[in-house]
Nucleic acid binder design. Structure first.
Lengths: 335, 335
DNA sequence: CTGAAAGCGCTAACAA
DNA sequence: TTGTTAGCGCTTTCAG
């Protein structure tokens, strides 16, 4: 079972050089004669030697391991968001040859920062302590999907406000006046901002903001169903619905169809996310595309720069979100 | 920027004890007087000392970091499978306080096993070399979702064959004779086995296996659309379709509805996965539930035992898959 | 260009 | 119960 480990010393012995030389070869330090290098490489191959990363790390004193902390709120693991972030961070790390430590944080037991050279926090949701802890310990970190100006940390976010504005503006432009929204969970910044974008545009266009047109959601389909039903039962139902997520928009479409109404002929529906699920179903969904994957990749790149000491100032980036027009919205009926 | 690191020595000094004592406190070794323990803990708090995990690891000589290797084949990151595995492994690691290293492997650049105390391979798909490399280096590893008897490695899989049999048997029992299948990608073991289950049950029931009733898919909705259309255009279309994944089943339902037919009245559709998406859409989907999440958790537990040296024999487990009956299947019309 | 030797921060015999 | 000390495997001055 336990083949004894091959150490750098064994390689040195076999190659007839010092361990220093072996180390140089491993680290591609040029000052080694062709001859010695070859013999060393040969020995490494023969012995199947692989340097112990832990020891290297200890000796070098740096750690390029990237930690990704994902808050474990209800349903996050079924969300397009989490998937995209993991995918983006994962692939970027793979490309840059960084190790990726994944932590699913419940916000209570503190994240073990010990092993991380830097940390990426996927949104802030009840895990502020972890972030301040990292800051406290001087571990490079960056927050994703949240404009975290409040705690003075690096961040890369998406322009939720702008995205929502574009969405509602589009609805207004195609003639809608009775525009409702199924909001996102207000504990998320995205939820708050998307709602704000909605209100802003209505105001700007002189459309009264009606409370009954603003219904709560929490990004879940369940919540969207309730919300959509409420909306449809109004004496004066909306002609367009802006949902704060595609999942919710999709469910709203369902509900509308069940009532015997048509999308977009009777009611237009607009989502947010550009979840691939938008492309399936009875109508393809007009939505707002957020560059989640890119945001995740960018975060890794920035983090690496910070770890390497190349970035001194705070990183604050807000990535644009764009409207993607498909089939679920149509001109308001001129009744 | 660079607050100098607090080392165990600093704590020892402040607490007026030896570093050994500090180490004992850290590692909760009981042989420390109440008094010393308190002073040490006090010092740790004051200095905000956190042991260097790298150094601990090197000194202890063991590494409880779990590596999770996910093959990066097309679309895996949009799959329910990947999500469930990451979620299951992630949460289990969190519970057992194991670090989780995530690797998204393209099968070409070898996975860096250096840092891993053990590895979980999420299925085998073009990454056999990584697995044999791990085996070679004597790193404990376990394969998930694949009956990997061929390479003599620990595995935990799902009973795809049994699940498919139950599914098709159900279809037969409710009177269907014209049963088609949209198969999964044959490069996956799941694809092969689900197809085999389908064939087995037809044979067992004396139903001829018609080639035209077996159409290829690759788990993607795109592929399912093509497959479903092919099936519906047959002179003698099937009365039931068994799809090798819920995504494909859902797309088949779409296609059927688009043709003006009804599900399940005209055609029954049965899926595989128990993806939450089954619960939405025009009809809830009858499907086969696989314990992916449990499989992932189980893998972590087993792996830990192996790393700890508690398991000596090969782990070979096959978890059952059960039929979940919902709305998408109905009795065959007695025409 | 090369190698001896001093760490990196912590753990674990072994004595005391 | 405590502390001394020798490593864990590798990197990196610093002479040679």
């Amino acid at each position: 079972m336990a083949e004894k480990k091959v150490r750098i010393e064994d390689v040195a012995k076999l190659a007839g050089v010092s361990i220093t030389t072996v180390s140089r070869v491993i680290n591609k330090i040029p000052t080694v004669t062709e001859d010695n290098r070859k013999r060393t490489e040969e020995a490494i191959r023969k012995l199947k030697f692989r340097p112990d990363v832990t020891a290297q790390r200890l000796a070098k004193g740096v750690n390029y391991t990237v930690g990704l902390v994902i808050p474990r709120y209800e349903g996050i693991f079924f969300s397009f968001f989490a998937m995209e972030i993991i995918r983006g961070v994962g692939m970027a790390c793979e490309g840059l040859k960084l190790d990726l430590l994944l932590h699913i944080s419940n916000g209570r037991t503190p994240v073990n920062l010990g092993n991380m050279g830097g940390v990426i926090f996927a949104d802030i949701l009840g895990n502020e302590k972890d972030i301040t802890a990292a800051l406290d310990e001087n571990i490079p970190c960056i927050v994703i999907n949240n404009v975290a100006d409040a705690i003075g940390v690096n961040y890369i976010a998406v322009d939720n406000l702008g995205g929502a504005k574009k969405a509602v503006e589009y609805l207004v432009n195609i003639g809608h006046k009775k525009i409702a929204t199924i909001a996102g969970d207000p504990i998320t910044q995205a939820g708050v901002q998307r709602l704000e974008g909605y209100k802003t545009i209505l105001e700007k266009n002189g459309i009264a903001i009606k409370d009954e047109y603003i219904v709560k959601g929490d990004y879940s389909r369940r919540s969207a169903r309730i919300a959509a039903e409420k909306l449809l039962n109004l004496k004066e139902p909306p002609t367009a619905i802006f949902a704060a997520s595609d999942d919710m928009a999709l469910e709203a479409v369902e509900v509308i169809l069940e009532k015997g109404l048509k999308v977009p002929e009777d009611i237009s529906v607009l989502g947010f996310d550009d979840n691939p699920a938008c492309l399936y179903g009875p109508v393809t969904l007009t939505t707002v595309k957020q560059p989640l994957f890119e945001m995740a990749q960018e975060a890794v790149r920035e983090l690496q720069k910070i770890i390497a000491g190349k970035t001194k100032t705070l990183v604050k980036k807000i990535l644009p979100a764009e409207l993607v027009i498909r089939e679920s919205c149509a001109n308001a009926k001129s009744k």
